[in-house]
Amino acid sequence: MAPSLTLLLAFASSSSPCIWAVPGAVIPNGSSVRIFCRVPPGVTALRLYHGEPGGRWHERLPEGAQDVVNFSLPKVTQLDAGKYFCDYWKQRSWTGQTELLELVVTGIYKDQPSLTAHPSAQTVPGGNLTLQCQPVSRYDTYILCRGGGDSFPQDCSPQSHSSFLISFVSLDQAGPYTCYATQSISPHLWTLPSNPLLLSVKLSLDVSTAIVASAAAAFLLLVLLLLLLLLCLRRRRGKRSMSRGAAYDGTKGQMRHESSSPPVLIHGESEDHDAQGAEPEAARQRDTLVPLAEAPQEVTYAQLHPVRPRAGVAPLLSQDPEACVYATLTLS
């Protein structure tokens, strides 16, 4: 197995104790491995336990502010397989146990299983696939590992039968797979690995065509909606411009009509005009001559009713409709 760098919980907080193995937790028989322990500040002693608490352990003393300590196993054997954890001494007690690391040694059993895919190693998303691990019949536990299987049990799935069903295959499940076999009484001692099986998950031609067609239809619909929106905005702006032009033309026509109208001379009843003959002519002209409006928007039309002072009580309004006169008033 090609060595690779696998750091379990590499992004954990420096104050949180954790443990991991390099190049991985699944190691061929006779290879070397290093086990790392991360501890919080203030630790004065560190132990790497193999098995249950009180079993075999290796001890290290952190140097200065060192927060990561490693333990090297130069040549692993079946005796090195099993569970590991770190414990550290702080504030006069061993109180800082980490989580467990399960170290697996492969090649203890010299049998090599074979791994096959049914119906095929090439499939499409959403389908069902069976991976068959075929070892010698004397094993009762089968392990399917994805990728290099460097982390156990994170990257590997053990079970009591040799058929591994993958339902609703997805694109992210593509890649190399390897299987092992072992005995349930020694779950950390495995056979030799099978030859890697490359699982290929690809979109079918029909699915790819449908996706491309859907994307193209969605794009065309978006473009059409944008064009309709631009057309509506343009028509709305055109209507606003036409209404403003019509209002401006109406205002100019009204100004021309009022500028050509002569002053309005107000005439009362004939007998009232004779009776008021003593009134100076200049005063009458000043009262009856209404000048033109200087601004069209300030022109106001009013209905005038001539009233003649009489003795006694008389109605204020004239009953003769012809006596009503309209005049143009200018508001200042």
Rank of each mutant, 00 (worst) to 15 (best):
Y248R: 15
G277Y: 00
D274H: 03
A282S: 13
L222T: 12
D287F: 04
E279F: 02
E271H: 12
L228G: 12
S241Y: 08
D287S: 08
D249N: 05
V212W: 05
L229D: 03
A282D: 11
L224F: 13
V223P: 00
D249W: 06
L220V: 05
P263G: 13
A246P: 00
M242V: 15
A275P: 03
M255K: 14
V212E: 10
L221M: 06
T288L: 11
L220N: 07
D249T: 04
Y248W: 07
L221A: 13
S261A: 12
Q276L: 11
S259D: 10
G253E: 13
L265M: 13
L224A: 15
E258F: 05
Q276I: 00
G245T: 06
L229S: 09
H267I: 02
L229N: 05
E271R: 13
E258T: 06
I266W: 04
S241V: 10
L226W: 03
R286N: 08
I266V: 14
L265D: 12
K239T: 08
L228C: 11
L289R: 15
R237Q: 14
D272E: 09
A246G: 04
Y248C: 09
H273N: 10
R237T: 03
H273G: 07
S260D: 12
A217W: 00
A247G: 04
A283N: 08
R237W: 03
R240K: 14
R244Q: 14
R284P: 02
D274L: 11
G268M: 03
G268N: 04
G277H: 03
G245M: 12
M242T: 14
L231W: 05
A218L: 09
R235G: 04
G253R: 13
A278S: 09
L231C: 08
Q285T: 10
R286Y: 10
Y248A: 15
A215F: 02
A217L: 06
M255F: 08
H257I: 07
E271L: 04
Q285S: 10
E258H: 09
P262G: 12
S270R: 15
H273P: 02
L226G: 06
H267F: 07
L226P: 00
R256P: 00
K252P: 02
M255G: 11
R240P: 00
L228A: 07
Q285M: 10
R235I: 04
D272R: 05
P263Y: 06
G253C: 04
D274A: 11
V290T: 12
G238V: 01
S261H: 09
R234L: 09
S243T: 11
V223W: 03
E281M: 05
A246T: 07
D249S: 11
I266P: 00
L228P: 06
L230F: 02
K252H: 08
